[in-house]
Structures are given as structure tokens and as C-alpha cells.
């Protein structure tokens, strides 16, 4: 008795949209980082679910790589937030708008 693939996909979508919701509504850069993690993991769920669905191991391995990349991303992201805070004394993403036109 296995769970049908639809539910995995719906789960990953829900996770993704939650992450998206965070990005769209939050202003704290740290929250942004967390939301992005959520979205990445939504992708991971998809990868693993479809790996299982197709009986192919590639998706599983790929999910591992995604996690590694997420770690790298967090490292850089945190560094950026650090600089952000140092320069603006704030981690509100709506404050640093000087790099537009």
C-alpha cells in the first residue's frame, strides 16, 4: 500500500506556496532565507517522490545535492544579511532600495 504520487506533489506544492507566501508577505531577511529553504525542500520532496514513482535513483541523489547547495546558499545568504545589517542596522528588505535605477 503506497501513497499515490498526487499527494506527494500536493504536499510539495503546499510547501512551495508556503515558502512563497513568506517571501511575498515578510520583510525580515531572515524570514526570506527560511522561506527559500522551504521552497527548496518542496523541490526535494518532488525529486524524491518522482524517483520513487519511476523507480530511478537519480532523483534521490539529486536531492542530496540540492541540500548541499542549500547549505551553500544559506552560508552566502547569511553573509549578505550580515552585511545588510551592518550597513543599514536593519534586516528589513524594504530598506535597501538604493540599487535600483
Amino acid at each position: 500500500m503506497t501513497v499515490p504520487i498526487e499527494y506527494y506533489v500536493l504536499l510539495s506544492m503546499a510547501l512551495f506556496c508556503i515558502g512563497l507566501f513568506g517571501i511575498l508577505t515578510r520583510r525580515n531577511a531572515l524570514m526570506f532565507l527560511m522561506s527559500v529553504e522551504l521552497m527548496l525542500n518542496a523541490a526535494n520532496i518532488n525529486l524524491i517522490a518522482f524517483a520513487f514513482y519511476h523507480g530511478n535513483l537519480t532523483g534521490q541523489v539529486f536531492a542530496l545535492f540540492t541540500m548541499a547547495l542549500a547549505a551553500a546558499e544559506v552560508a552566502v545568504g547569511l553573509g549578505i544579511i550580515l552585511v545588510l545589517y551592518r550597513n543599514f542596522r536593519d534586516v528589513d528588505v524594504t530598506v535597501p532600495t538604493t540599487m535600483r535605477w
Partner: peptide, 17 residues
């Protein structure tokens, strides 16, 4: 058109979505 570029990440994300 450049007024679209507010410099606020949230807006960009909203546009993307």
C-alpha cells in the same frame, strides 16, 4: 517602466509570481 523597479524584493517576487 522603471517605476516598476522599486528596489523592494517582495515586489519583484510578486511580479515573478
Amino acid at each position: 517602466m522603471k517605476r516598476l523597479q522599486t528596489g523592494i524584493v517582495t515586489n519583484y517576487a510578486a511580479l515573478l509570481v
